[in-house]
Design a protein around this nucleic acid. Sequence first.
DNA 1: GTCCGGATTGGCAGCGCTGCCAATTGTTGC
DNA 2: GCAACAATTGGCAGCGCTGCCAATCCGGAC
Lengths: 358, 358
Amino acid sequence: MDEEGNEAFAAREASMRDETVQDEAFRDGAVRRPITLADVAREARVGESTVSRVLRSHGSFSEKTRARVEAAVARLGYVPNRIAGTLASTGSRLIGIVIPSLTNIVFPDLLRGATAALEQEGFQSVIAVTDYDQDREEAVVGSLLSWRPAGLIVTGLEHNPGTQRRLVASGVRVAELLDTDGPGLDIVVGYSNRAAGAASARHLAGRGYRRIGYIGHDLSKDRRAAKRYAGFREGLGQAGLALAGEERVASPSSVEAGRHGLEALLARVPDLDAAYFSNDDMALGGYFHCLAHGHPVPGRLALFGYNGLDVGRLMPQPLATIRTPRVEAGATAARLLCAGGPATVVDLGFELIEGATA
Amino acid sequence: MDEEGNEAFAAREASMRDETVQDEAFRDGAVRRPITLADVAREARVGESTVSRVLRSHGSFSEKTRARVEAAVARLGYVPNRIAGTLASTGSRLIGIVIPSLTNIVFPDLLRGATAALEQEGFQSVIAVTDYDQDREEAVVGSLLSWRPAGLIVTGLEHNPGTQRRLVASGVRVAELLDTDGPGLDIVVGYSNRAAGAASARHLAGRGYRRIGYIGHDLSKDRRAAKRYAGFREGLGQAGLALAGEERVASPSSVEAGRHGLEALLARVPDLDAAYFSNDDMALGGYFHCLAHGHPVPGRLALFGYNGLDVGRLMPQPLATIRTPRVEAGATAARLLCAGGPATVVDLGFELIEGATA
DNA sequence: GTCCGGATTGGCAGCGCTGCCAATTGTTGC
DNA sequence: GCAACAATTGGCAGCGCTGCCAATCCGGAC
C-alpha cells in the first residue's frame, strides 16, 4: 500500500509491464487469421449458407446440422463479423443516439431506457454527445449516419437546417426525444416542457406565493429549459403574476450554478418568496444555499425544481418538482424505432410532485 | 396548453400524424437507391479510387480533382458508408465501451472522457451496460466484438473466465478502467480502490474518531467497492481500530440506500461517531438523514464518502471524500487505445478532500 | 524533341457475410 | 412403389468500399 492520502492528481505513468498474455493467444507462431464463417463451414462440413442460417436461426435446418455448426463454432471460438453481415444484408442492427450532455443525469437515464430496450431487440447503440451545440449535432449526425444505422434517436425538436436535411435525406427513422412542443420529423416521444413550466407556475401561485423568481442556466443552448421558462412565465401571467426577478448563470446547469444563482438573485431581490429552478440540480443547489444561510424552506423561501430526480425525494424536505419519464422515453423511442411503424407523437406526460419545499 | 399539472404518468399514445416529410425526400417517386461512391465518381468524372483518396485525404491527387469530387459529394449529398469501408480496410474506427451502470454518475463521467477523446481521434464509441452482472458482461463483450472494434474499454479487472478468453482471443486492445488492484490484461487505467479505502480510514482515525461504521451497497457485484471496504478495514486495523458496525443494503448504491442504511446502522449502533460510505451518493443520503434528525455533523457524527462528486462540494458543509479522476481515466484509456502502444498500467491516483463533515 | 521519374489516376480483386435460387433429400398420399 | 411436395442444403453474386498495381500524365533534364 504505497498510496498516500493526498495523491498528486496529475497522471503518473506507472511502470510498463511485460504482458505476454496476448501473444500466447497466437497459435503456433503463425500470423493468426481471423476465423470466418467459411472456416466454420469447413469445420462443420456444411455450406456457408447453412452456417449463416443456423447462427441467425433463420430459414430451416435440421437439428443435427444445428448441433454440428454449434460445435464447430465453439471449437473455433468463432465470433460473427457484423460489419460484413450488415453490409451484405439490408438493414443494420445499430441505432445512433445523439444526446447533448452526459453531465446531467437526465441523458444517461434516457440512454439507459434506450439501451435496455434495444438490447432486447438485438440492437446495439452508438452514442454521440453534442455539448448542446447544434453545429456539433450536425457533425455527429453525419458521422452516425455513415454507420448506416437502422434509426437515430436525437434530443429535442430544434436542429440546424443541415441536420434536418441530413436526417430527412438519409431515409433512416428518427426519434426526437424529451419535447413535444413543436413539429417533429418522424417519431416524437416526450412531454411538453411548456406545459410543465406552466403547471409549476400554477402550483406556486396556487399555494399563495407572490414574489416568485427564476434561476436558470444557459437557455440559448438548452431549448427545452427555454420552453419551460416560457411556459412558466405564461403560467404566472395567467395567475395575474409577473416574475419577481430572475438569474441566469452562463454555465450549464449544476448544483453549483443553482446555489450561486439563488444567492445572487436573493441579493438583488431580497423579498422573494419562491424560487423556480430550471431543474432539480439547480434546485438542490438552492436548497443547500438556504440550509447554509438558515433560510427556512418553504417558510422563508419556497423551492421548485424539474425532473424529479431521486435525490430530491430524499432531501430532509422532499423537493417540489415535476417528474419526467426519461427512462420510459428512451425505451419507448427505441421500441418504436425497432417496430418500424408510422410517424407518431407519443406524449408521455409528466407528474407534479408536491414535495415539501413549496 | 391542455396539459394539467397532475399528469397520468402512464404513456398515453397521442394521435398518429400523417407525416409525409420523409416521402417528399424521395426523388421522382422512384425507389431511392442510396448514393454510393460509384455515383460520386461518375458525377465527378473520376475513378472510384480517386474519390476514395480524396475523401480520406490519403494518397495524392490534384487540387482540381479534390474540388470536383467535393462538388459532386455536395451535389449528391453523399454520405460515405463506413460499414463497407471498415470491411474493406483492416481496422474499424469503433471502440466498444462496457460499463456496469448508467445510474451512477461515475460511469457517464467515464464515458464523457472517453467519447470526447475518441471523437478527437476520429473514433466512434459503441456502448453496452452490464448492470454489474458478469454473465451479461460476457454476453455484451461478445456482442461488441462482433463489430470488430479497434479496442474495448471495460470496467474493473474482474471478469468471467469466458470474458477473459474472448478478450484475449479476439486480439483487440483492451483497457480496464477504474481499478489498479490486481493484474490486468493489457492496458489498465485507474487508481487503487484499496488504497483509497485505507486512506479514508487513516484520515478518520487521525481526526480522532473511534466508533466508525460502514454503510455500503451490494459488494458482491461491485468489486471496486469491495476493495475499498477491504482497504478501509485494513486501514482501521493499522490504526488499532476495528469497525464499530456496518450496514449493507442489498440494492445498488443510491442516496436512498445511504439514508436508510445510516438510519438502520445508528439504530443498532447508537454510539457511532463516524460513518464511512461506499460512495458519495450514499454519503449524501446519510447527510440528509442527519439533517432530518438534527444530528450535528460532524459533532455528533462524521461522514466520509468516495468519488468527489460536485454535489458533495456544495453541501452546506462540504463532504469529506476522495476525488477520483474518472473523466481523465476515460480519456486516458481512449488515447492509449488509439495510440496503440504497449500494455501499460497508468495509476492516476486520487485526492483526499478534507471537507467539513469529518 | 526525347527520355526519365514522380505525381496522379483508374481498374479490379477482394473484405465476410447474406439472399437468392437451384439441387438434393426426406415425406406423405394414394 | 411412385409422384408430388416440403424440408434442407450448397453455390455464388454482390453489398460499398479500400488496397494494390498498372497506366497515364506532367515537367524538367538532356
